[in-house]
């Protein structure tokens, strides 16, 4: 079967040579839905390929790099992130209502979905396992500074932390601070510094080597 699930959306403890009971349940469901004519296996392949190779955090990185280099675009992003992001071609499911959150020297934004796993797919693709797990979902709103430390980010005490719980269909994209010493870099080079985590707010943009 082409969809062994090894690249998407399952827990690490399902991995290994033996299929776990959970993986077997999913395989049974897939076989059933194909047999009953509800799902076309070719469409499954396209859907998987779409979120593995076409829609992912490199999209969001383009948005951030443009915001860093084009003040007019940054203003548009603040005013109407949905349209500004759409102008770069990133539209669709789970990106219907976008808001951009700009980190500054004085404040740090961080995004969570305490109720499920809401995430801005058109700009970031599908969420990492930890984003969907109970520890991140509960602790991000209780002790964000401690969670950030575990991600290797220690913020100054006087920096304000703003946590955004995605409880409706509004989706949040963090615009990390532009690293110092990047004044001469091109938009492409800047985009390479923008990590997935920096756009969730659990990381910072990379400093050029």
């Amino acid at each position: 079967m082409p969809h062994d699930g090894h690249h998407h959306d399952h827990d690490h403890d399902d991995e290994g040579s033996e299929l776990s009971p959970l993986a077997l349940r999913v395989k049974a469901l897939e076989s059933l839905l194909v047999e009953k004519g509800y799902v076309d296996p070719a469409a499954l392949d396209v859907m998987i390929d779409t979120y593995e190779t076409k829609i992912g955090p490199r999209n969001g990185a383009r948005v951030v790099a443009r915001a860093w280099t084009d003040p007019d675009f940054a203003q548009w992003l603040k005013r109407d992130a949905t349209e500004a992001i759409a102008s770069l071609g990133y539209v669709g499911r789970q990106g219907e209502h976008m808001v951009a959150l700009f980190n500054t020297p004085a404040l740090h934004n961080m995004v969570v979905c305490t109720l499920c796993s809401c995430y801005p797919w058109p700009v970031l693709g599908l969420p990492p396992v930890w984003y969907k797990a109970m520890p991140y979902r509960s602790r991000a709103v209780i002790e964000p500074r401690e969670v950030l430390k575990e991600f290797g980010v220690t913020l100054p005490e006087d920096k304000e932390v703003r946590v955004w719980d995605s409880t409706a269909e509004v989706r949040y994209l963090v615009i990390p601070e532009r690293p110092e010493g990047t004044g001469s870099l091109s938009e492409d080079q800047l985009a390479a510094l923008v990590t997935r985590d920096s756009m969730i707010g659990t990381g910072l943009a990379k400093v050029p080597a």
Binding site: L29, Y38, V39, A43
Partner: peptide, 8 residues
């Protein structure tokens, strides 16, 4: 699983 549920 994600793809499966989106399609069904």
């Amino acid at each position: 699983m994600f793809a499966l549920m989106n399609l069904v």
